[in-house]
Design a protein around this nucleic acid. Structure first.
Length: 509
RNA sequence: GGCCCGUUCGUCUAGGGGUCAGGACGUUGCCCUUUCACGGCAGAGACACGGGUUCAAUUCCCGUACGGGCUACCA
């Protein structure tokens, strides 16, 4: 079978959707698994939908995810250019070649004329009008017009399109790697436009020409392309390229959390979750989005989550690094049915990855949250804090909420819980305890714990009278890591100052 | 409407003619713990329906239902 070459071919019409990321991921994994090449090609043949910045976004998003193309836009390669708008001449040449060979024809019907025709048919009760092997006989095209008339129109510069001449009465069958044999009746297929009035190719033409020229071995794309694959096969045939036609694998779609339709960009706002890898500044607030990155996701978690939306290794392992995914991936293990976007699962993955992060790595990821607040702790301190906090975070962005007291004084105390535990006798006890803590030699968590527990035992006290109040004194609330671990990290000075301040506050309540 | 694809716990899924239908998320309970979290244990929870084929179907075939996709000079 020659070299494995796969391409991810998004169109730059806006930020890359998470479904697109998964398509890229599966292409990437397949390429890596097979020792092949992962190619990035930009399908910008619709000048009307081109969005500035989208291309950079795509590249940045792939990079964030770790899905680096081995060839293509931004990387270069043997088959440049990889931006379809720069390949216009190529498509034109092939389209005309197809007209010559009889596989395609010129058509002069304007979009407006077609619209009117469709409306007229609809009025008659026929909602299925299409430009096909029957209706083309009554349209204005190279098959109905005399040759001289066609030449005249072309020479007059009249706008035209090139349409695929779909043959009659044939059955086209592909063997989809995920779904098995899928057949299409050519009589059901319309004469797709290949070359548009503006001289640009449609997806159908461009993708076949490029896949052929770029020696693509496998086309792994979303299921929304399955219905037009019959046309694609016909095109390979018309060009005489069927012998080297790539194999197809149509991926199941990612569905909305409620299962009603495929996930779309608006679902982010609707369900309160990200549907794009990175944030995007659109022209309006409705067109601006926070991405997984801004929500506080780790790219490794997003990748792991996405990989399992429609694929699984057949084992019970759930956590996979990108490298492990590359090893384990097979197209055979991709499911057929659409998968709902399970945001709870995504959160769980993120939490798992945060917990497994090295303190050092986590500290670096979390540091940017501190600067705007005016804090720049030294690395060692921040790492220790991360060590205590990481099992309490689901998102990177939880860091501040969950551990702000490691950087600034307690602003809000849990008065209810203080009132429940603080008695008139508490003050002398806590003052004595404070002295014990302050005098601790090493100020290591374990040592403080010993002395505090000794103090409690000697005084005939109960842990419940002491620990919770100590905790509230330090953090303001009933939540957080172990009290002594926190003291150890905060250090003698801060710990003592907070306890002293808290005793006054508690007593004044 | 037409064409194409699909259907195992609420969700993601494993499995495959004879299984106690397995795992994970979520959920419930318990344990751990000074608290929250983590972790551990336990529980509830699924083969869409109807016909075949077969000694035996969740698994194979056919229908039905339901869901999804496509149906542009968009990709």
């Amino acid at each position: 079978m020659g070299n494995i070459r796969v391409r991810f071919a998004p169109s730059p019409t806006g930020p890359l959707h998470i479904g697109g990321v998964r398509t890229a991921l599966y292409n990437y994994l397949f390429a890596k698994k097979m020792g092949g090449t992962f190619i990035l090609r930009i399908e910008d043949t619709d000048q009307g939908r081109y969005v500035p910045g989208a291309e950079d976004y795509i590249i940045e998003a792939l990079q964030w995810c770790g899905l680096t193309p081995g060839e293509g836009l931004g990387v270069g390669g043997e088959y440049e250019p990889y931006r379809q708008s720069e390949r216009k001449d190529i498509y034109q040449k092939y389209a005309l070649e197809l007209v010559e060979s009889g596989g395609a024809y010129y058509a002069f019907d304007t979009s407006q004329a077609l619209e009117e025709r469709r409306a007229a048919e609809a009025a008659k009760g026929n909602h299925n009008f299409r430009y096909d092997n029957v209706s083309r006989r009554e349209m204005k095209n190279g098959l109905t017009l005399p040759a001289s008339e066609v030449t005249r129109r072309l020479e007059a510069g009249e706008e035209y399109v090139v349409r695929l001449k779909v043959p009659n009465d044939e059955t086209v069958t592909i063997n989809d790697l995920i779904r098995g044999p899928v057949s299409f009746q050519t009589n059901e297929l319309d004469d797709k436009v290949l070359l548009k009035g503006d001289g640009m190719p449609t997806y159908h033409l461009a993708n076949i020409v490029d896949d052929h020229l770029m020696r693509i071995s496998h086309v792994i794309r979303g299921e929304e392309w399955l219905p037009s694959t019959g046309h694609h096969v016909l095109l390979y045939r018309a060009f005489g390229w069927e012998g080297t036609m790539p194999q197809f694998a149509h991926l199941p779609l990612i569905l909305k959390p409620d299962g009603k339709g495929k996930l779309s960009k608006r679902d982010g706002a609707k369900f309160g979750m990200p549907v794009f890898p990175l944030g995007w500044e659109g022209e309006t607030p409705e067109d601006s989005f926070r991405g997984f990155r801004e929500y506080g996701f780790l790219p490794e978690a997003v990748i792991n989550f996405l990989a399992f939306l429609g694929w699984n290794p057949g084992t019970e392992q759930e956590i996979f690094s990108l490298e492990e995914l590359c090893q384990a991936f097979t197209i055979e293990n991709i499911g057929k049915a659409g998968a709902r976007f399970d945001y709870d699962k995504a959160k769980w993955y993120n939490q798992q990855y945060i917990q497994r992060s090295e303190n050092e790595a986590l500290a670096a990821l979390v540091r940017p949250q501190l600067a705007p607040k005016g804090y720049a702790p030294d690395a060692g301190y921040l790492e220790k804090v991360c060590g205590l906090l990481k099992e309490r975070m689901t998102f990177l962005t939880d860091f501040w909420a969950v551990g702000c007291y490691f950087f600034e004084e307690v602003k809000q105390f849990d008065d209810q819980n203080i009132a429940k535990r603080w008695t008139p006798e508490s003050r002398p006890v806590f003052e004595a305890l404070l002295a014990v803590i302050e005098k601790n030699k090493s100020f290591a968590a374990a040592d403080i714990e010993v002395s505090v527990k000794d103090f409690i035992a000697e005084g005939g006290l109960k842990i419940g009278q002491i620990f919770p109040l100590l905790r509230i004194a330090l953090t303001g609330s009933m939540q957080g890591p172990g009290v002594f671990e926190m003291m150890g990290v905060l250090g003698r000075e801060k710990t003592v100052a907070r306890l002293r301040k808290a005793i006054d506050y508690f007593d004044a309540l």
